[in-house]
């Protein structure tokens, strides 16, 4: 992210403001959704979806990942892969324990 001229940056600033608006709306939405009468599975799903959208907005626009170099994207993909390995660890343990009981 270098070598921008002023107009380029100004269009960025407009994007930042739009992202800010979207994040604020999504925050209100996620709080609102938590009062819905749904099963806990559904509410976890909704909350995680909204959080992922918000997270992607921050990562893509504030952290400029949308226009980042291949090297960094690849490192992050590798990290995300191992992050999911970590996340599946408790799930695996839980489902596995259920089968032996």
């Amino acid at each position: 992210m270098s070598g921008h001229d002023n107009t380029d940056i100004q269009s960025h600033v407009r994007t930042y403001m739009m992202v800010f608006g979207a994040l604020a709306i999504l925050t209100v939405l996620t709080v609102g959704a938590s009062y819905l009468e749904v099963t806990s599975g559904e509410s976890i799903f909704i909350a995680l979806i909204i959080a992922s959208v918000k997270g992607s907005l921050v990562a893509s626009y504030f952290m400029h990942l949308i226009s980042e170099r291949a090297m960094i994207i690849n490192i992050l993909l590798l990290t995300i892969a191992f992050f999911f390995v970590l996340m599946f660890l408790p799930l695996m343990t839980a489902t596995d324990a259920a089968t032996i009981l």
């Binding site: 191992f82 390995v85 695996m92 343990t93 489902t95 596995d96 324990a97 089968t99 032996i100």
Partner: peptide, 18 residues
């Protein structure tokens, strides 16, 4: 090397799948 760690834990009573 990131997806072999539980072979240190066969004695913990993990199930057949894992």
């Amino acid at each position: 090397s990131f997806i072999v760690w539980a072979h240190h834990m066969f004695m913990t009573g993990m199930g057949a799948t894992m």
